[in-house]
Amino acid sequence: MSVPAHPQAMAPSRPGRTRTAPPQRPDQAPFGGRYRSHTLFGATGFVYLLLGLLALEAVWALGGGSASWSGFQASLASPFMIAIHAISFVSVIFVGVRFFRLFPKAQPPRLGPVRPPPAPVIIAALYAVWIGASVLFAAILAGGIL
């Protein structure tokens, strides 16, 4: 039922006078209860790595002229690439939701006499900006405007 934590978790700098049993995690890592979200959050780093490599490839393709750029754009239509983008989309939403939930807490108690607005207001504003900007960019990229 319980699984060992890091053997030095919460260990004091000098050992105590008696032998201790090693620290246990509360849940099964990496996907038990408390760890699920934490592990997935860390895993999104891998997604960013992939996107970063893709961006490098895009820049390389751009540098190679319009033919190589068209080739690169065509390659993005493959099922594999679509899958990568779908996973990235989900990851970004996951990180965004998690970050937005915490964002109001990270505000200082006040700046001078001014207190930040209540958490629901801040979160609503963040979603508004996020969704609004996403819709705008989608419209631009789809060629609808500009």
Binding site: S2, A5, A9, M10, A11, P12, S13, G16, T18, T20, A21, P22, P23, Q24, R25, P26
Partner: peptide, 21 residues
């Protein structure tokens, strides 16, 4: 069970000098 993530001294008693430090 004793509190997770801490070394255990006895039964349900943890060592928390690590926290004090």
């Amino acid at each position: 069970a004793p509190l997770a993530n801490f070394p255990v001294v006895r039964d349900l008693v943890i060592e928390f000098d690590g926290f004090m430090e």
